[in-house]
Design a protein around this nucleic acid. Structure first.
Ligand SMILES: [Mn+2]
Ligand SMILES: [Mn+2]
Ligand SMILES: [Zn+2]
Ligand SMILES: [Zn+2]
Lengths: 139, 139
DNA sequence: TACAACAGTGCAACAATGTTGCAAAATAAT
DNA sequence: ATTATTTTGCAACATTGTTGCACTGTTGTA
């Protein structure tokens, strides 16, 4: 019997450890994006801060999670879709950060439009982040 | 006789001080976006690290510079266009970060497209950041 | 299951980045 | 010129991120 969590780790050639299982479960439970600090709070003293840094880094490299840029010096991380693999992400959806509650959403069904760049500029990745009020916080 | 720098500070109701003049001049000279660390390097020991933090914060609040989100935990700052005033920015252009040289460009003539959000989501601000190779670094 | 090889973790020490309060200095207003 | 106000530097502290290394846990093989 294999849980979904164990399967995901194995699929990406990672040893199955307590911290990885737990951190991955946080993402699955939450549904939304998490910052390093969120994970630190959720896990209490269960494992070391350094382990969280290394786990997040490993997950990003393996294509399990992706980063979401912000203007407040706190990277958010969210689960990738199945197509993401090591070294090549396919997360071309819009992200939304709520100014009220701070929740960060992957808007999986809103895709990032192509932009026409000036001569000589070659795009490798495009991030579109919208901030405002989410559907939970609206009046 | 008033310099452009002094004028800009006065226009935004700021006292004209050495550090503000110097930091603003860095932005005017560079043309591109600067991170806190860039300013710290350019200024050497001329003024305190805390003063740089406070000056950048003040400039953002007053609409002299705007922030550019990144996925590497290092906010970049760039000069605003003239229309930006306290509490209300008008920097709806695309930003480009070169993976080779690290330079961050304001693509003033490439505007951010409107995106259609799911029901209940209200956009206040939209940031579009492209990364890749700039026209200086291509091939 | 037992063992060896390997990978991941915790800890400690450190570096970098950001924040706050307060007295001294600079600037602006009178 | 004097006063009122704002800004700065400093010190102290908090938070965030990085690295090396010994120890522990995991995996694959017998
Ligand atoms: Mn996402
Ligand atoms: Mn810009
Ligand atoms: Zn919200
Ligand atoms: Zn470049």
């Amino acid at each position: 019997m294999h849980s979904k969590i164990t399967d995901t780790l194995k699929k990406h050639q990672l040893s199955v450890t307590d911290s990885r299982k737990k951190i991955l479960s946080f993402f699955l439970q939450s549904g939304n994006a998490l910052a390093h600090a969120d994970i630190e709070h959720k896990s209490g003293t269960e494992f070391d801060r350094v382990t969280i840094y290394r786990t997040l880094q490993t997950f990003v490299e393996k294509g399990i999670i992706h980063t979401i840029p912000t203007a407040d010096n706190s990277i958010r991380y969210a689960l990738c879709k199945d197509e993401c693999v090591e070294g090549h992400h396919h997360d071309d959806h819009v992200h939304f950060i709520c100014d009220e509650c701070g929740t960060t959403y992957c808007l999986d069904h809103v895709s990032v439009p192509k932009v026409k760049l000036p001569k000589g500029f070659k795009a490798a990745q495009t991030d579109l982040v919208v901030s405002g009020t989410c559907n939970n916080c609206e009046k």
